[in-house]
């Protein structure tokens, strides 16, 4: 077994070169490169975590914005409905007022016209009495030659007319 047979001869160089190589690995790689690799891994983990958090925040923001939008939409619809109802009510009220005004006007016109008709009728009736009395007086004069006073004629006519 050369490991034992040669041991006395080689152990010094074995240990020396092993120590050199192990120290090289320890300081160059173990203390130099490995922490950097670990830092890269940690950095990546942190980046991924941050990205995930940012994505989560963005999603929450989008959700909130959508909720806000929906609320706004709802409010706007409510506003519009209220405005429409108000306008409708106003329009209905205005129509009623105008109708009432027009009705009043019509009623007044009607009343005026009726009054005018009544006056014209009574005037016409009065003038008919006069004409009838004159005619009656003239008819009396022509038929009998008697002179009838206008007052008597009017009185007679009136009586006849009243009796109908």
């Amino acid at each position: 077994m050369p490991q034992i047979a040669q041991l006395a001869l080689v152990y010094q160089s074995q240990w020396f070169w092993l120590l050199v190589v192990l120290a090289g690995i320890y300081f160059f790689v173990g203390k130099g490169i490995v922490p950097k690799v670990e830092a890269t891994v940690d950095n990546r983990d942190a980046t991924i975590a941050a990205d995930l958090a940012a994505a989560e925040a963005a999603r929450a923001g989008a959700d909130a914005a959508e909720e806000q939008l929906r609320a706004n939409d709802l409010a706007a619809r409510g506003n519009a409905q209220a405005t429409t109802a108000e306008a409708k009510a106003k329009a209905a009220k205005a129509g009623e007022v105008r109708l009432a005004k027009a009705e009043a006007k019509t009623a007044k016109l009607l009343a005026d016209a009726e009054a005018r008709i009544a006056t014209s009728r009574s005037a016409a009736l009065a003038s008919i009495e006069g004409v009838a009395a004159e005619a009656a007086a003239e008819i009396v004069a022509k038929v009998s030659g008697a002179k009838v006073t206008a007052a008597a004629a009017a009185k007679s006519v009136k009586a006849v007319l009243a009796n109908g």
Partner: peptide, 22 residues
């Protein structure tokens, strides 16, 4: 082979090769 720490051997050579590979 000399019984010296600085004796370079095939073993030392392969240690260095291992180091280089790492």
């Amino acid at each position: 082979l000399a019984a010296s720490p600085f004796q370079f051997t095939n073993s030392s050579l392969w240690m260095l090769i291992v180091f280089a590979a790492i």
